[in-house]
């Protein structure tokens, strides 16, 4: 009997670890193995000897697109993310008011959360193609005579705009959802207290709402920045390699050129950038009142 209870409590004691172990092992294997393998691929030749040839290729070869890809990935992030944060803040403030159809509006705004980057790209292609909605609309209205061309190598700046539009349209929902959740957690009384003490709309936003939203905005920023370095499908659909991005180059080196070492190097670079960004984020932002807000 006592033996029995001991066995039971022993199982109880290790139960959480037993429950977590399979998932954790799976993750560690499927992330750890590829990363090690990636390092091997990136820094060895066919014979298994150490080499920097892939690195040289990546950095210096005229057929490597690394620097333009890095540049465009950063440029896209720099343009898209601020717009998304502003829009998401606007949407959140809009939905914090009470009005008829509020739930409906909320559901509509989060639809893109479930739409893939490939589909998002195609949807915006239908808007912007030379036979697309906008061109046909503006031509019918007589605003333009010729369709505005968004796609093709000679229209790269327009392709860039198309990607920005599609990504802002599709991925703002994620930023919005995080910021809106944060806004909902702010007790209404904090805002009312500011009103009572004489704060106008702007003072309320600047001194109460924005500071209290800081953790959510930071989280949204982090997630968005990480995603920005993985941008792939939407670019491939709308611009192909006209606008090179890191993931796109990795894909190209891997599946078209069979430069497995170079592709692995791209993978490692994306992973390294993400880890560094995550680390900086944790170091930089440590909101002291986070505990209370998250209560």
């Amino acid at each position: 009997m006592s033996n029995n209870t001991r066995k039971y409590s022993l199982v109880e004691k290790y139960l959480p670890y037993i429950l977590i172990a399979p998932a954790l092992s799976y993750l560690l294997f499927f992330i750890g193995y590829p990363l090690t393998q990636g390092v091997l691929l990136a820094f060895t030749d066919q014979n298994g000897h150490f080499t920097l040839q892939h690195v040289y290729y990546l950095l210096y070869s005229p057929s490597s697109n690394f620097w333009p890809a890095l540049e465009d990935t950063l440029a896209l992030a720099a343009v898209i993310i601020p717009i998304q944060v502003m829009l998401a803040l606007g949407f959140s403030l809009m939905l914090s008011a009470n009005f008829k159809g509020k739930d409906m509006a909320l559901y509509i705004l989060i639809i893109p959360l479930t739409i893939s980057d490939v589909a998002g790209g195609l949807i915006w292609y239908s808007m912007l193609a030379s036979n697309g909605f906008f061109n046909k609309l503006f031509m019918t209205l007589g605003i333009i005579n010729q369709p505005i061309q968004f796609f093709g190598w000679q229209f790269r700046p327009m392709e860039f705009i198309a990607i920005v539009l599609a990504e802002v349209w599709r991925a703002t929902a994620l930023v919005f959802v995080i910021i809106f959740a944060g806004l909902q957690m702010i007790s209404k009384e904090y805002i009312e207290a500011a009103e009572v003490f004489g704060a106008g709309t702007w003072t309320k936003l600047r001194h109460i709402i924005f500071p209290m939203l800081k953790p959510s905005v930071q989280t949204a920023l982090l997630i968005r920045t990480l995603f920005a370095f993985q941008v792939f499908g939407v670019v491939m659909v709308l611009a192909g390699r006209d606008i090179p991005v890191l993931a796109g180059e990795a894909y190209y080196e891997q599946t078209i050129l069979y430069h497995y070492g170079v592709a692995a190097l791209y993978a490692l670079i994306i992973a390294a950038i993400s880890i560094v960004i995550g680390y900086i984020y944790i170091k930089m932002f440590k909101a002291q009142y986070l505990r209370e807000v998250s209560m």
Partner: peptide
């Protein structure tokens, strides 16, 4: 009239002390 134009002051039942200040 909105609160800010009333020149009132208030102690809230749940305090409403701003957590970020």
């Amino acid at each position: 009239l909105p609160p800010k134009d009333r020149n009132v002051s208030m102690v809230f039942q749940s305090y409403a002390v701003w957590p970020h200040m």
